[in-house]
Simulated scan of single mutants.
Amino acid sequence: MRRGWVLGGLAAAVATAAVAYEASPWPRVWLLRFFAGDGSDPVSATAPHIQPGLEQRLDLRYDGSRPECLLDVYQHEGTRPLPALIWVHGGGFVTGAKEPLRPYLSVVASHGFTTVNLDYTPAPEALHPDQVHQLGRAVQYVVDHAAELDIDPDQLVLGGDSAGAHIVAQAVLASLDREYAAGAGITEFLDPARIVGVALASGPFDPAAAMAVRGPFRWYLRTVLWAYSGSRSFAKDPEFAYSSITPHVHADFPPAFLTSGPRDPLAVQSHALAARLREVGGDVDEVVLEETSRSGHVFDFDLGSSDARLALGRLVAFLRRVTTTPHRHGASDAW
């Protein structure tokens, strides 16, 4: 009898877990957060390239409504005010943090830029378009505090990796195209006149197309899009069509720098966005690595890699082209 009770209890627990797994994105998100990371260590490989004289302002609160809404500012000694690269980390909308990017963005700052590294509220704690709006509030914070931060508020480049690249691209596009913004449900906007460029690494620029893939990556996409949208039936939501950036860009999209690795399952989406921008007359600088390269999704931050060093050099050249920063001999200039 006791054994029957035990087996019955186990069966009930399994059934309850199965129902919860299908009724909410939370069990899947917990799995993703538990197994987050690919085993690489970009911090230790990149930290040795940080130059002396770095100034850091850490964990500045840009939005008092959420505890996660903090940003860092990194600068080197030199002529001020400086153009700023404002970066949004990735993590499939549900994981990630700004801290692992501190070494990389500190190295970027060595070339004569201010770099801003921000956190936002992950999904499903917050749902789209909250993260897009939080980026807008971070940018507004930088503009409002430009004098004390020694930033030129009229020379801002927005950058992001993976999910962060999507947040950046959608925020910029919505600010340029209010009809698109209405369809996407976005109601807070950037000032496009202040955005002189975007840097986008391995972004999911066409989630609807990505859902056509099979295997574990499809499960991953379904999980994060369910969490981000708040709807298990997100694909039937009219707003979901507006999650695809590529079909909606036009010629007034700011100059764009794109990277992806040959082993990145989203590389085809970076290539498609670059092709579309060229088609509409946009300004595009895309890093395309040799097919023999082993670099994959968001390879950029591990400066122990020759591909990442190449991409950084190209990023710095792009930033120097779209801004008027005084030349400062940075880490990549010695490579």
Rank of each mutant, 00 (worst) to 15 (best):
G78F: 05
A138H: 05
P122F: 12
Q131H: 10
E179Y: 12
F93R: 04
T115N: 01
G160H: 04
K98L: 08
G183E: 10
V142G: 05
D154Q: 14
G164M: 05
A181V: 13
L135F: 14
G78K: 07
Q155W: 14
P100A: 08
A123E: 02
G112P: 06
P153C: 11
S162W: 14
R178E: 14
S175Y: 04
T95I: 03
K98R: 15
V107H: 11
Y120I: 07
E188I: 00
S175K: 09
H76A: 01
G96S: 09
V107R: 08
F93E: 04
S162F: 14
F113R: 00
K98Y: 11
L173Y: 06
P103R: 07
A184G: 07
S175E: 06
V107T: 04
S110C: 15
D177M: 08
S106A: 14
T187M: 13
A169M: 11
P81C: 08
D152V: 11
A184C: 07
L173I: 03
A182M: 06
L85S: 06
V139D: 07
V94A: 07
D177H: 08
V88F: 04
V108R: 07
Y180W: 13
L85V: 07
L105R: 01
G185E: 11
D150N: 11
R102N: 14
G164K: 00
F113S: 01
S175D: 09
V143P: 08
G183Q: 08
A169T: 10
G90L: 03
E99L: 05
A126Y: 06
L158D: 00
L118V: 09
Y120V: 04
I151E: 10
V108A: 04
L101C: 12
W87L: 00
V172D: 09
G96M: 06
V94R: 13
D152L: 10
I186Q: 03
E125F: 00
L156S: 11
V139Y: 14
P153F: 09
D119R: 04
A181P: 13
V116A: 03
D154Y: 12
L85Y: 11
L135D: 03
L173R: 05
L156I: 09
A138W: 13
V139F: 12
A138G: 13
H133C: 11
P83Y: 12
Q155D: 14
L190N: 09
A182H: 12
T121G: 03
E125P: 01
S106F: 06
D130G: 00
L190Q: 06
P124K: 11
L105E: 13
A126Q: 11
Q131T: 06
A126C: 00
A138R: 03
F113N: 04
A123L: 09
L127V: 07
D154V: 01
L85H: 08
A169Q: 05
V172L: 01
D144N: 15
T79M: 05
Q155P: 04
G183M: 10
D191L: 02
H145L: 05
T95V: 09
P81I: 06
Y141R: 13
V143I: 15
V88L: 14
G160A: 04
T95H: 09
A182I: 00
T115K: 09
D119P: 01
G112K: 02
E125G: 00
D130H: 09
P83Q: 07
Y141I: 11
I86C: 05
G185L: 12
L156V: 02
S162Q: 14
A84Q: 13
